[in-house]
């Protein structure tokens, strides 16, 4: 464990909590892409299958349980509890365009052709594109509430910090995980456009982020 990975995990946790609290307190999931949240729940489900077979550390186990619980709670709030505030008419990204390539690639590119390894690889590739429906929804509505942009900021920051963690691990323990690194870089690149808008509009304007 290093400071970059710890900061990344904290940033990820903060992002998930920001979103969950926003939906819970505003009793509404307007402007939130339910599809992205389902994809994130799928990412955690397929990545953390080793939760019951491999014990790495208390921290690792606790965080996996927390991420799974909070992501399913968020999906529950969107599709069950506050489903009448869900903007399904704006959440129209075709997720099959994400799932088919990701499934295909995880069968082609993996460390071992075993179910656990392929599912882990699937979760890594899926996480890189899981935010697409949310970013698409924002471009479609042309705006995002500032709390949603803070959620996206911490979510994008988490994988950027993981990149720093991978650089650190490469130099300190000669360890690198090519699949995670390539996917993590792609994932962070997808956030760059948002980061630009976040720094130039939200932090300065302190209001809604309205797209040009």
């Amino acid at each position: 464990m290093n400071v970059f990975r710890l900061a990344g995990d904290v940033s990820h946790l903060v992002a998930i909590i920001i979103l969950l609290l926003k939906i819970w307190r505003s009793k509404s999931c307007a402007g939130i892409s339910g599809k992205s949240q389902v994809l994130f729940a799928l990412v955690f489900t397929t990545r953390y299958l080793d939760l019951f077979t491999v014990f790495i550390s208390v921290y690792n186990t606790v965080m996996k349980v927390v991420f799974l619980a909070l992501s399913y709670a968020t999906v529950y709030l969107i599709y069950m509890r506050f489903r009448n505030s869900y903007n399904s008419e704006n959440d129209t990204f075709r997720v099959e365009f994400l799932l088919v390539p990701v499934i295909g690639l995880s069968f082609l590119e993996n460390y071992a052709f075993t179910p656990l390894e392929i599912l882990w690889t699937f979760s890594i590739f899926l996480e890189a594109v899981a935010i697409m429906p949310q970013l698409f929804m924002i471009t479609k509505t042309g705006e995002a509430e500032s709390i949603t942009t803070h959620y996206l900021f911490f979510l994008g920051l988490y994988r950027a910090l993981y990149i720093a963690n991978w650089v650190w691990r490469y130099h300190t323990e000669s360890f690198y995980d090519l699949i995670a690194i390539v996917s993590g870089v792609v994932q962070t690149i997808f956030f760059c456009d948002f980061f630009y808008l976040y720094f130039t509009r939200v932090l300065r304007g302190r209001g809604k982020m309205t797209l040009p």
Partner: peptide
């Protein structure tokens, strides 16, 4: 170089 899935990461 240790090159494997980083399963200790979240």
């Amino acid at each position: 170089l240790v090159f494997s899935g980083s399963k200790d990461e979240l």
